[in-house]
Design a binder for these strands. Structure first.
Lengths: 114, 114
DNA sequence: TGCGATATGTCGTATAACGACATATTATGA
DNA sequence: TCATAATATGTCGTTATACGACATATCGCA
């Protein structure tokens, strides 16, 4: 049986992209802007990272293409993506890993306050 | 001014090695075992990862060599390492990054429980 | 008309994790 | 005593991926 945990950890870029799509489906540029806002400006994805990650995530089936409603008017070359079921599982597993890591650090760092 | 945040994120392997050394100075093999225990068996560092990381961490001055007390008796080829001041700063910064990421995920994932 | 924002992509480089391989010592139990 | 497991450190090649630089096109607006 293949569990989501086997794919962890995912990179920060991948995590933030998945997290952005967890809220709603978006196209690449919107993900870029959302990740920047989401991280309070700390993370600015370069286009190399973004589109490379999107293509990888599609291959892995963690995200899926969504056909834009209203394709007639205002049809730019935008491509919309959404999180797949599998992607949501991975995101949840990675979130737990992050929580666990943060909790471990809190404990160990508290031990040594002397 | 160079702040610890500029080096983030650090890899999971690096983070766990630093966290292990935050408790007390250790030699490589002991770090390996501690990381395994610390992560409840989830992370088993390969020696390639471990010794590669240690050598890099020394270069970056995030860790330092410690001369073993009692070098006469029981002197194996063990090399002991400790966390440097800079290393502790990086570890603290990375812990905060992890907390922030985990908190972000908690919020977004809670939004979409419907 | 031109510029900034929106939008997508490729390419080359650098970093680092990882498994496989190599080697040596120490402790233990059959 | 002899083999085996645990302790201990290291190198090498492969692979994954982040990132900056470059390239291109459209849209809205002043």
């Amino acid at each position: 049986m293949e569990t989501s945990q086997e794919h962890l950890p995912v990179s920060e870029a991948t995590f933030l992209i998945l997290l952005s799509l967890a809220q709603e489906s978006r196209h690449g540029y919107a993900i870029m802007k959302d990740v920047e806002a989401l991280s309070q400006g700390r993370v600015s994805l370069s286009t190399g990272t973004l589109y490379g990650a999107l293509s990888r995530l599609l291959d892995q089936r963690w995200i899926e293409r969504v056909e834009d409603e209203l394709p007639e008017q205002s049809s730019r070359t935008r491509k919309r993506y959404r999180l797949s079921e599998q992607g949501r599982h991975v995101l949840q597993a990675e979130s737990q890993r992050l929580e666990q890591l943060a909790a471990m650090a809190r404990l160990r760092l508290a031990e040594n306050l002397s």
